[in-house]
Design a binder for these strands. Structure first.
Length: 927
RNA sequence: GGGCGGUUAGCUCAGCUGGUUAGAGCGCCUGCCUUACAAGCAGGAGGCCACAGGUUCGAGUCCUGUACCGCCCACCA
């Protein structure tokens, strides 16, 4: 790198440089103390493992940026920080992608290639694309311990899965049963309730007649000789095994116990009474299809009805469907309707909107389907998970999301964990082909534990992906082995994720963590907002409104993206990001301008510093030579450090960042840097401002590093070259580090054991805080602004020096006189003075700043002046009226807090004085 | 059907325990290429804080209701 920072901020160059430094120092890697790691407390985050074949999207970008902010913050605070990265095999998602691919390329299905071959193909796919997302994460600056990267199908995780399964099975918490499950006929597997999305679709309501077997007793049915049922899925009638009616229905008494002919099948089915059937709903008669409807299933159980399955796994009618066998379910629907019509049994068809479950993965309509599945009896696990949150052991941020978690756990139902897929953790169950015994074990058994037969067959199913995800916080650290890592890093500290997987994942990790480790997996759950497009819609590829974070990094830089994302991370639940298309056809958003502009400003302010820190001498610093501006900027810095640290500890992201932004831009750049320009160029005066500048910049870089790591690291490196020794002699001394990433946080750590170590700023920054000085500078700035406004209104050329006088109470006049040079410098004056006796000179423009009247001489444009004063008068008048009204209210005087009343009185006196002054000036104008 | 958010400047959002004249960034207007920065500097305009009630001396802030927008959960034929 050249000696001087390049004139233009180039994100790519600095990203490369910082990466190189971090890689060389291996700063992301960490070890537990027993293995030679740092003997400081642990701070651990487990990455929510992204889908192995996925690509980075903005959701990942924000999620991982926030994790990185926390990790870098804690690392600088001296914690032994582990951020463990990894990916999820995402069973159903990955397999369906590969299957789709196969179909597209060769037209084959998985059954054509067979299990072994398909799994091999998926592994190939995984090898090809598996680490893509991790590589992309590196570009956003994720400081993960890449040496500890895990994959949910790694042996270390697989071992944990087998142990968990076996333990739960032996405890009786895992069972197998024939149940009605959500069946995806495309992927031919069961899916969990939460993998089903309900969509409203336009369908029909078909009214069908079921003739009574004994028409002579049909008076209750209106002498019609039949009952009418209504359904949205007419083909399911092939599986009907009863017709139900509410026992309170008038028709029930006569009909219950009778039978009807089930059309098209030749079967006769009973009419039964069941409370589930609602009075006045539909026709009052409900066709009961226990094998293909969850409610009917319950009714079937209650009445011990036959469960007649009429579907094949791929969604065709099976042999139970008689002549319809072999037809696809929707072809069958048509045929059934046609046949019913032909037989005069179709009463009518009504269009009807209704909710239909669709597979989250294949998008196809889910069929309730009766099959053998494995389940976890979750209630006992859920109880502990509920307690963990209710007792405060685990905290949600923001708190309201605990509601989502608890509501779900309170209403939890058994979890179907088996999937009829080939990609995933195989269920560790072996059926003895000889005696039928069910064997389980963490290793493949050689023989049946009961009859010793060697003829065992493993269950063909795999486990739901969330089963292994649920173990993530402890399986990745080596459980069930008692590794040093597990001992030291578990329980982890913070889980950072979006609210969409609170139930799917967060709750299950808590249940499994408590079950296996007897300890919660993390203590804090940080839920961040979801990013939506400008219309408030979720971003997705199919809608074309998605933004690729890599495009943003290319366009604005990684730091700029991170800055903007952090800036948007407030406690709200959504972030709207209006999408625009650039001239390269990429989706971007000008919301990222703020980050880019900020980085550019930081870059240039640093350039200014570098240009003026040449030869800075730490030992030359003399605190007695500090001016008010030096003290002021240190006070502002200290205040910022304090607030930022506190807010980060509360999982606030936007607020602290904007606090630093204001400090850096508005205080440091707008005022301090300008004020020291003359001093810093003067050999006799430069020592103090140079040291203060180097110190303040250093601290600012530390504060900013978690948010914008690349640029701050790059500048820090340069600062190390030009000002190797930084601090304020005899006040604050510290050793600089080779890299900012491991530099100490300005306030040290909130954790006692890590404060006071070598290299720490050792700063009780609070000592710098001086409110009187801050007020003094605010007064000075106010006067400067008033004069600038006059200059603007009168379009005074920038170079032209003016003269100003002020009338102010003695105390304030003294402050102003003491700082006359600062005011002259920033307001473009050659002369400035203040006094309580000062009166407005002839031909002067006037302004009011609180208790101060400012007169700028030699300017007179009566009309312009009148307009300015009139506007000021208006403002004051409104304020006076408001305050007068308050004080005129007897209740205000008697009930408001005395100090508020006093404040209001004072305020009114001030305002009236100001108003008087303005009116006086106005009167003078008229003369 | 149940639960949870949101509604503040043209746009995207802050506004924590109620108390001076409601803030920021972008956009807009005026003037500046002032040797750190035009991705910038200085100044400015712009708001019955969704609506209706209520509590209070005082409400953007607390309570109730209404309207729209969004999310999550839910087995209704």
């Amino acid at each position: 790198m050249a000696d001087e920072l390049s004139k233009v901020y180039e994100p790519k160059e600095i990203e490369r440089l910082a990466d190189e430094i971090w890689l060389k120092g291996n700063y992301f890697h960490t070890e537990p103390p027993a293995k030679g790691g740092r003997k400081t407390p642990a701070y651990t985050i487990m990455i929510p493992p992204p889908n192995v074949t996925g690509a980075l999207h903005l959701g990942h970008a924000i999620d991982n940026t926030l994790q990185d902010v926390l990790i870098r913050f804690k690392r600088m605070q001296g914690f032994n920080t582990l951020w463990l990265p990894g990916t999820d095999h995402a069973g159903i998602a990955t397999q369906s992608v590969v299957e789709k691919n196969l179909k597209g390329q060769t037209g084959q299905t998985r059954h054509d290639v067979g299990r072994e071959k398909l799994v091999e193909m998926i592994w190939d796919w995984k090898k090809q694309y598996g680490n893509r997302i991790l590589e992309q994460l590196k570009r956003i600056g994720a400081s993960c311990d890449w040496q500890r990267t895990r994959f949910t199908l790694d042996e270390i995780c697989a071992k944990a899965v087998r142990h968990t399964f076996v333990n739960l099975f032996k405890k009786g918490l895992i069972y197998r049963g024939k149940r009605l499950v959500n069946w995806d006929v495309v992927l031919q597997t069961a899916v969990a309730d939460d993998e089903v999305v309900h969509k409203t679709i336009q369908g029909n309501f078909w009214y069908i007649h079921y003739p009574l077997v004994d028409p002579s007793q049909s008076d209750a049915a209106g002498d019609s000789g039949f009952v009418t049922v209504a359904t949205t899925r007419p083909e399911t009638m092939l599986g009907d095994t009863a017709v139900a009616v509410n026992p309170k229905d008038k028709r029930a008494r006569k009909l219950v116990g009778k039978k009807v002919h089930l059309p098209l099948t030749g079967r006769q089915i009973p009419i039964i009474a069941d409370d589930y059937v609602k009075l006045g709903e539909g026709t009052g008669f409900l066709k009961v299809t226990p094998a293909h409807d969850p409610n009917d299933y319950e009714i079937g159980l209650r009445h011990k009805l036959e469960m007649l399955n009429i579907l094949t796994p791929d969604g065709k009618i099976n042999e139970n469907g008689g002549k319809y066998a072999g037809l696809d379910r929707y072809e069958a629907r048509k045929a059934v309707v046609e046949d019913l019509k032909a037989q005069g049994l179709l009463e009518k068809v009504e269009p009807r909107e209704h909710e239909v479950g669709h597979s989250d993965r294949s998008g196809d309509i889910i069929e309730p389907y009766l099959s053998d599945q494995w389940f976890i009896k979750v209630e006992p696990l859920a109880k502990r998970a509920i307690k963990a949150v209710e007792s405060g052991k685990i905290k949600f941020h923001p708190e309201r999301f605990a509601r989502t978690y608890l509501d779900w756990l309170y209403g939890i139902r058994d979890w179907c964990i088996s999937r009829q897929l080939w990609w995933g953790h195989r269920i560790p169950i072996w059926y003895c082909q000889k005696c039928g015994h069910i064997n389980t074990g963490v290793e493949d058994p050689d023989e049946c534990e009961k009859c010793k037969s060697k003829n065992l067959q493993q269950d063909p199913d795999v486990l739901d992906t969330w089963f292994s995800s649920a173990l993530w916080p402890h399986s990745t650290l080596g459980w069930p082995d008692e590794t040093e890592e597990l001992k030291f890093y578990y329980p982890t500290n913070t889980l950072v994720t979006g609210r969409d997987i609170i139930t799917l994942w967060v709750s299950r990790m808590v249940m499994m963590g408590l079950e296996n480790m007897d300890e919660v997996p993390f203590t804090d759950v940080f839920i961040h907002p979801t990013i939506l497009d400008g219309n408030g819609e979720r971003m997705s590829k199919s809608k074309g409104n998605g933004i690729d974070p890599i495009d943003i990094i290319e366009t604005y830089g990684s730091d700029a993206m991170r800055f903007s994302l952090c800036q948007m991370t407030t406690e709200s639940q959504d972030i709207r990001l209006p999408v625009i298309t650039d001239n390269l056809g990429r989706n971007i958003s000008d919301k990222f301008d703020i980050g880019r502009n900020f980085c550019n400003k930081l870059w240039n302010a640093s350039r200014f510093a570098m240009m003026n820190l040449e030869g800075v001498d730490f030992d030359s610093f003399d605190r007695k030579k500090m001016t008010i501006t030096d003290k002021w900027i240190l006070s502002r810095l200290a205040q910022t450090v304090k607030e930022v640290t506190a807010m980060l500890d509360e999982f606030k992201i936007s607020e602290p960042l904007m606090e630093i932004y204001r400090f850096f831009w508005n205080d440091l750049c707008d005022w301090y840097l300008e004020w020291i320009k003359p001093r810093i160029k003067d050999a006799g005066q430069k020592d103090v401002p140079q040291n203060v500048l180097a110190f303040v910049l250093d601290m600012t870089l530390r504060l900013l590093h978690p948010f914008v790591p690349f640029i701050t690291e790059g500048i820090f490196q340069k600062l190390n070259e030009i000002a190797p020794k930084r601090g304020l002699k005899n006040i604050i001394e510290f050793k600089t580090t080779d890299a900012l990433i491991i530099a100490d946080w300005p306030m040290g750590s909130t954790h006692s054991t890590s404060s006071g170590q070598a290299g720490s700023p050792q700063a009780n920054m609070d000592d710098f805080i001086e409110p009187e000085i801050e007020n003094e500078i605010i007064t000075v700035q106010g006067v400067v602004r008033a004069i600038r406004e006059i200059r603007n209104k009168y379009t005074v050329p920038p170079g032209k020096k003016l003269t100003a006088t002020t009338n102010a109470p003695a105390k304030i006049a003294k402050i102003l006189n003491d700082n006359a040079d600062l005011i002259c410098d920033r307001a473009g004056l050659d002369k400035f003075s203040a006094s309580p006796k000062e009166v407005k000179p002839q031909n002067a423009a006037a302004a009011i700043v609180e208790q101060i009247q400012v007169f700028v001489q030699g300017l007179i444009d009566a009309e312009a002046e009148r307009r300015r004063l009139e506007k000021q008068k208006e403002e004051k008048l409104t304020a006076v009226k408001t305050n007068e009204a308050k004080l005129a209210n007897a209740n205000f005087i008697s009930r408001a807090k005395p100090e508020v009343v006093e404040q209001t009185k004072q305020r009114l006196v001030e305002l009236k004085k100001q108003l008087e002054a303005i009116e006086k000036n106005l009167a003078e104008l008229k003369n």
